[in-house]
Computed example of a mutant assay.
Amino acid sequence: MKVVLDCIPCYLRQVMNATAQTEFSERESRELMYQILPMIPELDPEGTPAENSTLVLRKVNELLGIEDPFLSAKKEANEKALSLLPQLRERIRQSEDPLYTALQVSVAGNIIDLGIITDYNIEETLKESLSGTFARDDSKEFKKRLNQAREILILGDNSGEIAFDRLLVEELRRFGVHVTFVVKGQAILNDATFEDAAKVGMDDVADVISNGNGYLGTVVRKRSQELIEAMDRADLIISKGQANYESLESTREAGEKTYFLLRAKCEIVAGNLGVKLGNMVFARNSMG
Protein backbone atom coordinates (compact mmCIF):
# COMPACT_ATOMS: atom_id res chain seq x y z
CA MET A 1 0.00 0.00 0.00
CA LYS A 2 1.51 3.32 -1.12
CA VAL A 3 1.32 6.63 0.71
CA VAL A 4 -1.24 9.25 -0.23
CA LEU A 5 -1.57 12.93 0.67
CA ASP A 6 -3.82 12.13 3.62
CA CYS A 7 -0.96 10.21 5.25
CA ILE A 8 0.85 13.47 6.09
CA PRO A 9 -1.58 14.60 8.84
CA CYS A 10 -1.31 11.09 10.28
CA TYR A 11 2.48 11.40 10.58
CA LEU A 12 2.02 14.62 12.53
CA ARG A 13 -0.70 13.12 14.72
CA GLN A 14 1.70 10.34 15.67
CA VAL A 15 4.26 12.96 16.68
CA MET A 16 1.69 14.59 18.94
CA ASN A 17 0.70 11.25 20.45
CA ALA A 18 4.35 10.48 21.18
CA THR A 19 4.99 13.80 22.93
CA ALA A 20 1.76 13.30 24.90
CA GLN A 21 3.43 10.29 26.58
CA THR A 22 6.06 12.62 28.08
CA GLU A 23 6.10 15.56 30.46
CA PHE A 24 6.90 17.98 27.64
CA SER A 25 5.04 21.27 27.86
CA GLU A 26 2.93 22.50 24.96
CA ARG A 27 5.72 24.90 24.02
CA GLU A 28 8.33 22.13 24.02
CA SER A 29 6.05 19.87 22.01
CA ARG A 30 5.45 22.63 19.48
CA GLU A 31 9.18 23.22 19.09
CA LEU A 32 9.74 19.51 18.55
CA MET A 33 7.02 19.47 15.89
CA TYR A 34 8.76 22.36 14.10
CA GLN A 35 11.95 20.27 14.01
CA ILE A 36 10.04 17.36 12.48
CA LEU A 37 8.26 19.35 9.76
CA PRO A 38 11.31 19.78 7.45
CA MET A 39 11.71 16.01 7.09
CA ILE A 40 8.15 15.47 5.80
CA PRO A 41 8.96 16.49 2.18
CA GLU A 42 11.95 14.14 2.28
CA LEU A 43 9.84 11.04 2.93
CA ASP A 44 9.52 8.58 0.06
CA PRO A 45 6.24 9.23 -1.81
CA GLU A 46 6.53 5.71 -3.25
CA GLY A 47 7.05 4.13 0.14
CA THR A 48 4.48 2.69 2.52
CA PRO A 49 2.77 4.67 5.29
CA ALA A 50 4.23 2.28 7.87
CA GLU A 51 7.81 2.81 6.71
CA ASN A 52 7.52 6.60 6.52
CA SER A 53 5.83 6.76 9.94
CA THR A 54 8.73 4.80 11.40
CA LEU A 55 11.28 7.31 10.10
CA VAL A 56 9.30 10.17 11.65
CA LEU A 57 8.90 8.39 14.98
CA ARG A 58 12.58 7.46 15.14
CA LYS A 59 13.41 11.16 14.79
CA VAL A 60 10.85 12.01 17.49
CA ASN A 61 12.46 9.56 19.92
CA GLU A 62 15.86 11.03 19.13
CA LEU A 63 14.65 14.57 19.81
CA LEU A 64 12.84 13.48 22.96
CA GLY A 65 15.94 11.69 24.18
CA ILE A 66 13.73 8.73 25.13
CA GLU A 67 14.20 5.26 23.67
CA ASP A 68 10.62 4.17 24.35
CA PRO A 69 8.18 6.99 25.22
CA PHE A 70 5.28 4.51 25.19
CA LEU A 71 6.82 2.15 27.79
CA SER A 72 4.40 3.04 30.59
CA ALA A 73 1.35 2.93 28.29
CA LYS A 74 2.44 -0.48 27.01
CA LYS A 75 2.71 -1.91 30.51
CA GLU A 76 -0.73 -0.56 31.37
CA ALA A 77 -2.25 -2.07 28.21
CA ASN A 78 -0.70 -5.48 28.92
CA GLU A 79 -1.95 -5.53 32.50
CA LYS A 80 -5.46 -4.51 31.48
CA ALA A 81 -5.61 -7.14 28.73
CA LEU A 82 -4.27 -9.86 31.03
CA SER A 83 -7.01 -9.10 33.57
CA LEU A 84 -9.62 -9.87 30.91
CA LEU A 85 -8.14 -13.16 29.70
CA PRO A 86 -9.92 -15.59 32.08
CA GLN A 87 -13.41 -14.46 31.04
CA LEU A 88 -12.44 -14.26 27.36
CA ARG A 89 -10.89 -17.73 27.43
CA GLU A 90 -14.14 -19.06 28.88
CA ARG A 91 -16.15 -17.19 26.22
CA ILE A 92 -14.09 -18.89 23.52
CA ARG A 93 -14.42 -22.30 25.20
CA GLN A 94 -18.21 -22.06 25.27
CA SER A 95 -18.51 -20.76 21.71
CA GLU A 96 -20.11 -22.83 18.95
CA ASP A 97 -17.17 -21.78 16.77
CA PRO A 98 -14.19 -21.24 19.09
CA LEU A 99 -11.77 -20.31 16.31
CA TYR A 100 -14.06 -17.59 14.97
CA THR A 101 -14.56 -16.21 18.47
CA ALA A 102 -10.80 -16.25 19.06
CA LEU A 103 -10.36 -14.23 15.87
CA GLN A 104 -12.99 -11.73 17.10
CA VAL A 105 -11.17 -11.38 20.43
CA SER A 106 -7.80 -10.99 18.71
CA VAL A 107 -9.03 -8.27 16.37
CA ALA A 108 -10.65 -6.41 19.27
CA GLY A 109 -7.18 -5.90 20.67
CA ASN A 110 -6.20 -4.12 17.47
CA ILE A 111 -7.94 -1.00 18.81
CA ILE A 112 -4.92 -0.53 21.14
CA ASP A 113 -3.03 1.60 18.62
CA LEU A 114 -1.58 4.67 20.31
CA GLY A 115 -0.34 6.10 17.05
CA ILE A 116 -3.95 6.61 15.95
CA ILE A 117 -6.33 6.18 18.90
CA THR A 118 -5.38 7.33 22.39
CA ASP A 119 -8.77 7.12 24.12
CA TYR A 120 -9.79 3.54 23.30
CA ASN A 121 -12.18 1.56 25.51
CA ILE A 122 -11.16 -2.07 25.31
CA GLU A 123 -14.23 -3.44 27.11
CA GLU A 124 -16.62 -1.69 24.73
CA THR A 125 -14.54 -2.77 21.74
CA LEU A 126 -14.65 -6.39 22.90
CA LYS A 127 -18.44 -6.25 23.22
CA GLU A 128 -18.69 -4.78 19.74
CA SER A 129 -16.29 -7.31 18.22
CA LEU A 130 -17.92 -10.33 19.84
CA SER A 131 -21.39 -9.26 18.71
CA GLY A 132 -20.28 -8.30 15.20
CA THR A 133 -18.97 -9.95 12.08
CA PHE A 134 -16.08 -9.36 9.70
CA ALA A 135 -16.85 -6.98 6.83
CA ARG A 136 -14.54 -9.14 4.76
CA ASP A 137 -14.52 -12.68 6.04
CA ASP A 138 -12.28 -15.44 4.71
CA SER A 139 -12.40 -17.42 7.95
CA LYS A 140 -14.15 -20.45 6.44
CA GLU A 141 -11.49 -20.76 3.75
CA PHE A 142 -8.78 -20.24 6.37
CA LYS A 143 -10.22 -23.00 8.57
CA LYS A 144 -10.24 -25.45 5.67
CA ARG A 145 -6.60 -24.68 4.94
CA LEU A 146 -5.79 -24.84 8.65
CA ASN A 147 -6.87 -28.48 8.72
CA GLN A 148 -4.03 -29.24 6.28
CA ALA A 149 -1.45 -26.92 7.85
CA ARG A 150 1.47 -27.71 10.14
CA GLU A 151 3.18 -24.33 10.57
CA ILE A 152 1.39 -21.06 11.39
CA LEU A 153 3.12 -17.69 11.59
CA ILE A 154 1.51 -14.69 13.28
CA LEU A 155 2.90 -11.21 12.61
CA GLY A 156 2.13 -9.41 15.85
CA ASP A 157 1.16 -5.79 16.31
CA ASN A 158 0.58 -3.98 19.59
CA SER A 159 1.17 -4.46 23.31
CA GLY A 160 -2.04 -5.33 25.12
CA GLU A 161 -3.34 -6.77 21.88
CA ILE A 162 -0.67 -9.47 22.17
CA ALA A 163 -2.47 -10.88 25.23
CA PHE A 164 -5.60 -11.44 23.15
CA ASP A 165 -3.42 -12.94 20.43
CA ARG A 166 -2.33 -15.53 22.97
CA LEU A 167 -5.92 -16.80 23.12
CA LEU A 168 -5.90 -17.12 19.33
CA VAL A 169 -2.65 -19.09 19.50
CA GLU A 170 -4.14 -21.40 22.11
CA GLU A 171 -7.08 -22.09 19.79
CA LEU A 172 -4.89 -22.59 16.71
CA ARG A 173 -2.84 -25.18 18.58
CA ARG A 174 -5.98 -27.31 18.98
CA PHE A 175 -5.66 -27.97 15.26
CA GLY A 176 -2.30 -29.61 15.86
CA VAL A 177 -0.20 -26.83 14.34
CA HIS A 178 3.05 -25.27 15.50
CA VAL A 179 2.81 -21.49 15.96
CA THR A 180 5.54 -18.88 15.63
CA PHE A 181 4.79 -15.34 16.82
CA VAL A 182 6.70 -12.31 15.54
CA VAL A 183 7.45 -9.20 17.62
CA LYS A 184 9.46 -6.06 16.93
CA GLY A 185 13.21 -6.12 17.42
CA GLN A 186 13.19 -2.57 18.77
CA ALA A 187 10.63 -0.34 20.49
CA ILE A 188 8.40 1.67 18.13
CA LEU A 189 5.10 3.28 19.14
CA ASN A 190 3.28 0.76 21.38
CA ASP A 191 4.17 -2.25 19.22
CA ALA A 192 4.90 -5.52 21.01
CA THR A 193 8.50 -6.55 21.70
CA PHE A 194 10.07 -9.60 23.40
CA GLU A 195 9.32 -8.00 26.78
CA ASP A 196 5.62 -7.78 25.99
CA ALA A 197 5.57 -11.36 24.74
CA ALA A 198 7.13 -12.55 27.99
CA LYS A 199 4.68 -10.48 30.05
CA VAL A 200 1.62 -12.17 28.52
CA GLY A 201 3.18 -15.64 28.41
CA MET A 202 3.28 -15.86 24.63
CA ASP A 203 6.52 -17.83 24.85
CA ASP A 204 4.60 -20.55 26.72
CA VAL A 205 2.39 -21.28 23.69
CA ALA A 206 4.47 -20.24 20.66
CA ASP A 207 8.00 -19.71 19.46
CA VAL A 208 8.63 -15.96 19.67
CA ILE A 209 11.00 -14.40 17.13
CA SER A 210 11.99 -10.87 16.13
CA ASN A 211 11.28 -9.16 12.84
CA GLY A 212 14.89 -7.97 13.03
CA ASN A 213 14.15 -4.26 13.23
CA GLY A 214 12.06 -1.53 14.82
CA TYR A 215 9.95 -0.62 11.80
CA LEU A 216 6.17 -0.46 11.99
CA GLY A 217 4.60 -3.29 10.06
CA THR A 218 6.73 -5.81 8.21
CA VAL A 219 9.00 -3.98 5.79
CA VAL A 220 10.02 -6.69 3.33
CA ARG A 221 13.56 -5.47 2.75
CA LYS A 222 14.21 -4.99 6.47
CA ARG A 223 13.27 -8.51 7.59
CA SER A 224 15.73 -10.61 9.57
CA GLN A 225 16.91 -13.85 7.98
CA GLU A 226 15.03 -15.66 10.74
CA LEU A 227 11.78 -13.97 9.71
CA ILE A 228 12.39 -14.57 6.01
CA GLU A 229 12.83 -18.27 6.68
CA ALA A 230 9.82 -18.38 9.01
CA MET A 231 7.57 -16.74 6.40
CA ASP A 232 8.80 -19.12 3.71
CA ARG A 233 8.28 -22.13 5.97
CA ALA A 234 4.79 -21.21 7.18
CA ASP A 235 1.78 -22.91 5.64
CA LEU A 236 -0.41 -19.98 6.72
CA ILE A 237 0.34 -16.47 7.98
CA ILE A 238 -1.92 -14.25 10.07
CA SER A 239 -0.90 -10.60 9.73
CA LYS A 240 -2.19 -8.39 12.55
CA GLY A 241 -2.99 -4.70 12.25
CA GLN A 242 -2.87 -1.83 9.79
CA ALA A 243 0.89 -1.38 9.55
CA ASN A 244 1.42 -5.01 8.57
CA TYR A 245 -1.34 -4.63 6.00
CA GLU A 246 0.17 -1.41 4.65
CA SER A 247 3.57 -3.02 4.19
CA LEU A 248 2.56 -6.49 2.96
CA GLU A 249 -0.69 -6.29 0.98
CA SER A 250 -0.34 -7.56 -2.60
CA THR A 251 3.31 -8.48 -2.09
CA ARG A 252 4.85 -11.68 -3.38
CA GLU A 253 6.48 -12.21 0.03
CA ALA A 254 3.06 -12.35 1.72
CA GLY A 255 1.62 -14.46 -1.07
CA GLU A 256 -1.78 -16.12 -1.01
CA LYS A 257 -1.14 -17.83 2.32
CA THR A 258 -1.35 -14.57 4.27
CA TYR A 259 -4.58 -13.44 5.96
CA PHE A 260 -4.92 -9.88 7.26
CA LEU A 261 -6.65 -9.56 10.63
CA LEU A 262 -7.33 -5.95 11.56
CA ARG A 263 -9.72 -3.14 12.27
CA ALA A 264 -9.75 -0.45 9.56
CA LYS A 265 -8.83 2.62 11.60
CA CYS A 266 -8.27 5.14 8.81
CA GLU A 267 -10.23 6.05 5.70
CA ILE A 268 -7.35 5.22 3.36
CA VAL A 269 -6.93 1.67 4.67
CA ALA A 270 -10.70 1.17 4.77
CA GLY A 271 -11.00 2.32 1.16
CA ASN A 272 -8.16 0.08 0.08
CA LEU A 273 -9.87 -2.87 1.74
CA GLY A 274 -13.28 -1.93 0.35
CA VAL A 275 -14.86 -1.64 3.81
CA LYS A 276 -16.17 1.11 6.07
CA LEU A 277 -14.10 2.93 8.67
CA GLY A 278 -13.99 0.88 11.86
CA ASN A 279 -14.93 -2.42 10.22
CA MET A 280 -13.26 -5.67 11.24
CA VAL A 281 -11.50 -7.59 8.50
CA PHE A 282 -10.15 -11.12 8.12
CA ALA A 283 -9.14 -11.24 4.48
CA ARG A 284 -6.71 -13.26 2.39
CA ASN A 285 -3.99 -11.32 0.64
CA SER A 286 -4.89 -10.50 -2.96
CA MET A 287 -2.20 -10.86 -5.59
CA GLY A 288 -4.36 -9.34 -8.33
Rank of each mutant, 00 (worst) to 15 (best):
K2G: 15
C7N: 05
I8Y: 11
P9I: 07
Y11R: 08
L12K: 15
R13H: 03
Y34P: 01
P38W: 11
I40D: 12
E42F: 01
A50F: 02
L63G: 13
L64Y: 14
E67V: 07
F70A: 09
K75H: 13
Q87V: 02
Y100N: 12
S106D: 12
D119G: 05
I122E: 14
E124G: 10
E128A: 09
E128T: 08
G132W: 11
T133L: 00
D137N: 15
D137H: 07
D137P: 04
K140T: 05
K143T: 15
A149H: 07
R150G: 07
L155D: 14
G156D: 10
E161Y: 01
E161R: 04
I162C: 13
E170L: 02
F175L: 01
F175D: 15
H178M: 12
V179E: 09
T180S: 10
V183R: 01
V183L: 07
N190T: 06
N190D: 13
T193R: 07
F194L: 13
A197S: 12
K199A: 07
D203C: 10
D204Q: 14
G214K: 12
K222Y: 06
Q225N: 13
L227M: 11
A230S: 15
A234T: 08
I237A: 09
N244H: 05
Y245Q: 10
E246N: 10
E249N: 04
T251Q: 08
R252C: 05
E256Q: 13
T258D: 03
Y259T: 01
F260H: 12
R263Q: 15
R263Y: 10
K265T: 05
E267P: 05
I268C: 00
I268N: 11
G271H: 03
K276R: 07
L277Q: 14
R284K: 14
G288M: 02
